[in-house]
Simulated assay, not measured.
Amino acid sequence: MTTVTVSVGQQAYDVKINDTLHTRIGAEIASVWTPRQIALITDSHVGPLYLAETTRQLEAAGFQVLPLEVPAGEESKSLQVAGDLISALAEYGFTRGDGVVALGGGVIGDLAGVVASLYMRGIGYIQIATSLTAQVDSSVGGKTAVNLGATKNIAGTFYQPNLVLVDQTYLETLTDRDLVEGYAEVVKTSALAGPEFFGLTGKIQNITDIRTHAQALSARAITYKAAVVMADEKEAGQRQFLNFGHTLGHAIELLAHGELRHGEAVSIGMMALTERMVRVGVSPADLVPALQSRLTAVGLPITSDLLGTPAFFDRLVNDKKNHAGTLNLVALEDIGQPIIVPKALSAMPEFMASI
């Protein structure tokens, strides 16, 4: 068992990483929560696989479980769906002493986190992360959000969970594509963290390697992100570094209308940004092939025709890192040396055309 403790403000919680956690969910949750009502939120992909067994374990541990399933996909990350879930909690008489458990990937984690943070101004919240994206990134740090129209993650909260369970066994039921899109976040984190972690991702040569080393990759990524979150919970400083690849990536993800997964878009965003930062003298030239080799080794895309289109620039206006017309772009001066490069929105067309 690897345990990473995240301490922010007056709250601390554990992220537990082990491939047997799926067999003792009830006991793990009972270690941090007294018996109560639990809204167990999942989606139509994960539910048929794990909802019944998770419910059984929770009920055996003394919890009353309300299973709530939403359609799988980014479309469920909406104010409408969040409102429907909140209404369900109210209908079943949930109080401030009850809780929400997210059973799923990044979409479910974000959605359930929003619900928990808003219901009665906040009730207990636990994440059981079933995708690699959720395990290495979105389940840690307390950022929750839903989308509004064509704007990604525009309505949300900083709301820390009481516990996060990361079990690589859940990855066995992921398709290769779903697994690989999460690996993009691992590559991102390794580039931010430094040569040791970046060296580990350099040894991943295929999808089988990801599955074989998933626990070590998750532990490294979570340890790094936890340290960043503890130093900067509300993204006022160094937590912005975790957005490496995301500003450009989010824009093309939205324009792709479901044809690109989040991690695929981040992969493209990292490459597009780094190529241009090399051109303007911010990043070293050898960073481009180093990133490219790690991404293409497992089949991640590294470019898109959506980059630089008029619609692409329109999407940048609504990015959360747009501060009064200036984007805070995250670049790398070297591996393990991220920096913020302010760039006026008006200068982005010229910047994107710089290769």
Rank of each mutant, 00 (worst) to 15 (best):
T2Y: 10
V8T: 06
G9E: 04
Q11S: 13
Q11P: 03
A12P: 02
Y13H: 00
D14Y: 05
D14S: 14
I17C: 09
D19A: 09
D19I: 11
T20K: 11
T20Q: 13
I25V: 15
A27K: 07
I29M: 13
I29S: 08
I29L: 13
W33E: 10
P35G: 02
R36L: 09
I41Q: 09
I41M: 06
S44D: 12
A52I: 06
E53V: 12
T54K: 08
V65E: 01
L66H: 08
L66M: 09
E69P: 11
A72M: 03
E75Y: 10
S76R: 04
S78Y: 09
V81H: 01
V81E: 01
V81S: 09
A82D: 03
I86E: 05
L89K: 15
G97W: 03
D98N: 15
D98I: 15
V100Y: 08
V101M: 07
L111K: 04
A112K: 06
G122R: 12
G124P: 00
G124C: 07
Y125W: 04
I126G: 10
A134G: 12
V140P: 02
K143W: 08
V146H: 01
L148I: 06
L148M: 13
G149M: 09
I154Y: 15
Q160R: 12
N162H: 02
L163K: 05
L165Y: 06
V166F: 00
Q168W: 00
L171F: 10
L174T: 06
D176M: 11
D176K: 15
D178V: 05
D178F: 13
L179N: 15
V180S: 13
E181W: 01
A184T: 03
E185M: 14
V186W: 03
K188N: 05
S190G: 14
A193H: 01
G194I: 02
G194N: 00
P195E: 04
P195S: 12
F197Y: 11
F198K: 12
T201L: 13
I210W: 14
A214S: 11
A216G: 14
L217T: 04
S218P: 00
R220F: 01
A221G: 03
I222M: 04
T223C: 05
T223I: 06
Y224E: 10
K225C: 11
K225T: 10
A226K: 01
A227C: 05
A227Q: 07
V228W: 09
A231I: 03
A236R: 14
L242R: 05
A251N: 03
L254N: 05
E259T: 01
R261P: 14
H262D: 01
H262A: 11
V266A: 10
R279P: 00
V282T: 06
S283Y: 08
P284S: 01
D286L: 15
D286V: 13
L287E: 07
A290S: 14
L291V: 08
Q292F: 11
L295P: 02
L295E: 05
L295K: 10
I302T: 15
I302R: 08
S304G: 10
D305G: 14
D305Y: 00
L306A: 08
A311E: 07
F312P: 12
D314R: 05
D314M: 02
K321Q: 05
T326A: 12
N328P: 02
L329F: 05
A331C: 14
D334C: 04
I339R: 15
I340N: 06
V341Q: 15
P342N: 03
S346N: 12
M348N: 09
A353V: 04
S354V: 10
